[in-house]
């Protein structure tokens, strides 16, 4: 793998890392498998692209994207908590609804951002070489996200959120409205996913309605790889591991797709197969390790 390819993979790992942090929040903290993310990632991209084209500051467009994502998460969580729809089904419903909504927002299936302002302009203006600007911007944003989320989970409200995922009966009897907590948590998660989508769109120069397909799989893959490789003994460690897991996942994909065995090479369309194999390996690795140790 060339340095450029590695740099590209790290950049992808960081930008999607923000999404992975969101997925960690729902999947692990709230115990709420949330497929909304497949729709809220392109939602963030769509909102950001429309805002930038309309002349808004690209950083401000991230705020709009976050609000849109938050709202999408709230819809899923309300369907689940107030109307008792199974969390997976509720999130699938929101996800497919978002597909149509995203096309409405963009007035079409995609918007090009090739000559538009992006979050990188400010950094490049400071004299950072363009090919490092992505890693720099995404790295700072992802790190800030981890710090904020770890801080939040240490607050009274955040502790109640942790306990809600762990023991809902207990927190209810301690006076916590678990429905409100789940709505807030799933909202926050999708807000992060939408920011991630907005950044991806600005990075690749277009928002596309199809860009969210497989987000949840990539998110879960990163979470599981992160946990397997870096552990999750504390909240801070778990979130750093999720972010690093995202980078490892993108590196592994880049490595696999660049692999040449004799005359055989992978096509980009083999991505899903490679992802599935990666996740399966990460899932069975701890199990295999235990068995080998026992022998």
């Amino acid at each position: 793998m060339t340095l450029y390819a590695a740099l590209g993979a790290i950049e992808q790992g960081l930008v999607y890392g923000i999404m992975v942090i969101g997925v960690y929040l729902t999947f692990r903290i709230l115990d709420f498998p949330d497929l909304t993310v497949d729709g809220s990632l392109p939602l963030g991209a769509a909102i950001s692209a429309v805002a930038i084209t309309a002349g808004y500051n690209p950083y401000l467009s991230l705020v709009f994207a976050a609000m849109g994502g938050f709202l999408a998460g709230v819809v899923t969580a309300v369907l689940n908590t107030k109307f008792k729809i199974l969390h997976l089904l509720a999130s699938i419903l929101t996800m497919i609804a978002l597909y149509s909504i995203n096309i409405r927002i963009m007035s079409g299936p995609n918007i090009a951002l090739l000559s538009a302002d992006t979050v990188f302009d400010a950094v490049i203006a400071l004299g950072v070489p363009p090919h490092y600007s992505g890693v720099l911007v995404f790295g700072m944003l992802a790190a800030a996200t981890v710090v904020l989320i770890v801080w939040f989970l240490g607050t009274e409200l955040g502790q109640a959120m942790l306990a809600t995922g762990d023991n809902p009966q207990m927190v209810t009897s301690l006076g916590v409205n678990t429905h409100a907590i789940i709505i807030l948590g799933v909202g926050l998660s999708n807000g992060l996913v939408a920011i991630s989508g907005a950044l991806v769109a600005q990075n690749q120069g277009a928002a596309d309605v199809g860009m969210g397909i497989g987000t949840i799989v990539a998110g879960l893959a990163s979470v599981i790889i992160g946990e397997t490789v870096f552990g999750s003994s504390s909240i801070a460690r778990a979130f750093v591991a999720a972010l690093l897991g995202s980078i490892l996942y993108r590196l592994a994909i880049a490595l696999a797709l660049g692999l040449e065995i004799g005359g055989f090479t992978f096509n980009p369309s083999d991505l899903n197969l490679v992802t599935a194999i990666l996740v399966i390996s990460a899932l069975i690795a701890p199990n295999l390790k235990n068995r080998l140790i026992q022998r």
Partner: peptide, 20 residues
Amino acid sequence: EQNLALANRRGLRRGLGRGV
């Protein structure tokens, strides 16, 4: 400690102050 802190706010508003 975290469990006790959760219980120590039973029925009170939970904000952005430190949990423990």
